[in-house]
Design a protein around this nucleic acid. Structure first.
Length: 756
DNA sequence: CGATACGGCCAC
DNA sequence: AAACGTGGCCGTATCG
């Protein structure tokens, strides 16, 4: 163990001279006399986070109305932000207690605690009359493989309870609370089994993936999910700041609602007394049901989106639960060895860099190589030129050949990033229950409809991780399960095929029809050279001409400016402009389509994905541009105008991108549903992952050519770009995640072994 | 120590 | 003038 030896050199503070003490005392007195109004002005003008500012305003309001006064800790001192926040925390505690008391006292008369067999039997009878029921599980935590269900809430919308005018019954069935009369979880689940499995009774939930997985944790399927209010909300407004039920209820239903954390802090739900638990948990399905009604009204104006929601997003939830639960196996020996290699090299580089840069470091203590703040000045001095930033790609890489120290730094950064985020970090994230590694796939994690991956919002200590940004070096840690292989299948040029289809551009369509490479085709047209000459170099690498086409192509999809394009291609700006113009001049339909997208953003403030299945709302596109007089571009007076205009420009760029990215995401999701169906019918097959334009399967290692053909069909036939553009797929077979073999290589290899 | 912001960088 | 779309995570820095 390393023991850090430090000498305590701190001396007692030297006594201040008397004069200074008098001045300080006067200052303190003056500060304490500051009127509260001025103190508030000062505090509110400070650089406060949004959260702090909201808290401060709440305290100010409470003080002004006499609800609260100064905090005891602030006696004789100037009123400070710290004191205000202390007052806030006391206020919160009191409000919390009041809220809980009030919640229990005002528990609606149609909320019922189901805590004995007779009531459960009666509930079961009532459930038989329902066609759709809201469901929610209360649990000990958010690890769906380790935590357990402590209670179940249900909303039965058609029950009438005289003399109540409003229909609906909301129940909470505690099954594992520490205190209070209740039925056991096993008993309740077995009694409700018929209901859980009956697909004829629709289930309505908020964030169904969690609950489906929790029921599965106890060996039960939650079948017949017909609506997920969280997912639906993403389709109704992908710009919503929060999708928590507790935030949506006040905003759209006019019902105040506190989050679990606000009410209970870190107390697990099984420790909550049953009267409070009923009021809280039954309200969950009550709100979910009401939000469902609200959402159905809104979907009436969006029939194509509703159809997509029901056909794709809802069934997809089951696919995701299986995908996540399947999980990953990591090669820990490999990770350990590789991690040690990286760490050895990192230490070498660290020592070298410290030696080289310390003479140029002016701060206290050792130079921190990970701190851009410290490194920028030190490195600038070391190489004798002022660096604008420490950006690896733009600033440092061009200087790496000239300055050894920069080459070392770049290698150091790469290694520490790799080990810190992936190689050393992942092995610690094994799930304690399943002994596998699990990722979260959030089907609505992005505004365009792509998945995001990572851990849940309120789960700091979660063992989930982002599987979609694993670098090549880290992918090697992921192993196929024993006796299986990983098969990755991507959509060949997915976004370009999508663009060809959406725009109807003949040049692109013809390229795909002829089965030729669209980049090479464009390069051939642009440079007026034979296709084969611009396709690939003899060594199999891209030609510079084809590479340039790829850059221009991506630049177009991302809305890149000519300025940036020029920078990327190493051209002057007018050259880049000419390049783009000539290239797109040869594709008038594509150009018209790009222009129409911008016009739509400006006119309507939104664009559609394929077949109007998803909207991307870009309200900034409708803003009116502000004029900045010639020559005033640097004038701070026009900062706001510049910001305003750049928001509009951003919306314009997002329009085309959202159409292509969003439509491609739909293709991936539909294909996943098909893949899941096929996997369910085949022994040992499972969906292993998805990375935007790619699905990864795991299948038994004795697969046949026909199995590969099945995967090809899944990829190319599940979602077609009309009859216009065919899909393509590249398939790779792997024992560990990475490059892999083509099917031809695999079978050739296998046959040669068999004949040997 | 928690919350937050930011620079930087991984993926498609 | 600004200048490339969609994400998530790590380490540093700052604040109270």
């Amino acid at each position: 163990m390393d023991v850090k030896l430090t000498l305590n050199l701190r001396q007692p503070a030297p006594d201040l001279d008397a004069k200074q003490r008098v001045v300080d005392a006067a200052k303190r007195k003056k500060a304490a006399e500051e009127p509260l109004e001025e103190a508030w002005e000062r505090i509110l003008a400070m650089k406060n986070s949004d959260a702090d500012q909201a808290k401060l305003l709440a305290v100010k309001g409470a003080m002004e109305t006499g609800v609260t006064g100064r905090h005891p800790s602030g006696a004789g001192k100037r009123f400070s932000k710290a004191e205000a926040l202390r007052i806030y925390s006391d206020m919160r505690e009191k409000i919390r207690e009041d809220t809980l008391r009030k919640m229990v006292a005002e528990t609606p008369r149609n909320y019922f605690l189901i805590d004995n067999e007779r009531l459960l039997t009666r509930l079961n009878e009532r459930l038989r009359n329902e066609t759709e029921v809201a469901v929610d599980a209360e649990t000990t935590g958010v690890d769906v493989y380790t935590d357990v269900i402590v209670g179940i809430s249900l909303t039965l919308p058609s029950v009438s309870i005289p003399p109540l005018a409003e229909k609906g019954m909301h129940v909470y069935i505690p099954v594992m609370h520490d205190k209070g009369e209740q039925l056991s979880r096993d008993y309740v689940l077995s009694e409700l089994r018929w209901f859980l499995y009956d697909e004829g009774i629709g289930k309505v939930l908020h964030n169904a993936i969690f609950d489906i997985a929790m029921f599965r944790r106890h060996g039960y399927d939650l079948r017949g999910v017909t609506w997920d209010t969280m997912v639906a909300m993403h389709l109704l407004n992908e710009n919503e700041p929060s999708y928590r039920l507790k935030d949506l209820a006040p905003k759209y239903l006019g019902v105040e609602s506190d989050t679990f954390a606000e009410l209970f802090g870190k107390t697990p739900f099984n420790e909550i007394p049953l009267d409070i638990a009923l009021a809280y948990a039954a309200k969950d399905t009550d709100l979910t049901w009401r939000l469902y009604q609200f959402q159905r009204e809104h979907f009436a104006t969006l029939p194509t989106v509703l159809e997509y929601y029901r056909a794709v997003e809802v069934p997809l939830l089951y696919v995701i639960v299986d995908l996540e639960a399947n999980g990953y196996i990591l090669d820990l020996d490999f990770a350990k060895e590789y991690g040690e290699q990286l760490s050895t090299r990192a230490k070498e580089l660290h020592a070298k860099l410290i030696e080289m840069l310390t003479p140029y470091h002016s701060g206290e203590g050792e130079l921190n190589l990970n701190s851009p703040q410290q490194m920028k000045p030190a490195l600038s001095k070391a190489i004798g030129r002022e660096l604008p930033n420490m950006d690896a790609k733009k600033t440092l890489k061009p200087l790496a050949k000239e300055f050894e120290v920069i080459a070392y730094l770049l290698e150091y950064r790469k290694i520490t990033k790799l080990s810190g985020t992936y190689i050393d970090a992942l092995p610690t994230k094994q799930n304690p229950t399943t002994k596998r590694w699990h990722s979260r796939f959030n089907p609505m994690g992005t505004v365009t409809g792509r998945f995001s991956s990572g851990k849940d919002e309120d789960a700091e200590d979660s063992t989930s991780f982002n599987v979609q940004n694993q670098p090549e070096e880290a992918r090697k840690m992921f192993l196929a399960p024993e006796g299986k292989v990983l098969i990755s299948a991507d959509f060949k040029a997915q976004e370009i095929r999508c663009t060809a289809y959406l725009s109807g551009e003949p040049v692109l369509i013809e390229a795909f029809e002829k089965g030729i490479d669209p980049y090479a085709n464009m390069a051939s047209m642009y440079y007026k050279r034979p296709y084969n000459e611009v396709y690939k170099l003899p060594n199999g690498e891209d030609t510079p001409a084809r590479k340039a086409m790829k850059v221009v192509w991506l630049a177009t999809l991302y809305g890149m400016s000519d300025f940036s394009l020029a920078e990327m291609l190493g051209l002057k700006k007018p050259e880049a402009t000419a390049f783009k113009e000539e290239l797109f001049g040869g594709m008038p339909k594509l150009s018209a389509w790009l222009k129409a997208n911008e016009e739509d953003v400006a006119k309507y403030g939104f664009v559609w994905a394929d077949k109007q299945q998803r909207k991307r709302r870009l309200p900034d596109g409708k803003l009116k541009r502000k004029t900045i007089p010639y020559g005033k571009w640097n004038d701070p007076k026009y900062d706001d105008a510049r910001k305003h205009n750049s928001q509009i420009n951003r919306a314009m760029r997002q329009g085309t991108n959202a159409r292509v990215q969003g439509s491609s995401a739909i293709q991936t999701k539909v294909t996943m549903i098909k893949a899941h169906e096929v996997c369910a019918k085949r022994e040992g097959w499972a969906l292993w992952g998805t990375i935007h334009d790619e699905l990864v399967f795991e299948i038994p290692e004795d697969f046949t050519r026909e199995d590969i053909a099945v995967i090809e069909r899944i990829m190319t036939q599940s979602y077609r770009w009309g009859d216009v553009v065919a899909n393509g797929t590249d398939i790779a077979i792997m024992r560990r995640w990475g490059k892999g073999m083509t099917p031809e290589e695999w079978f050739a290899n296998k046959e040669s072994k068999e004949s040997a």
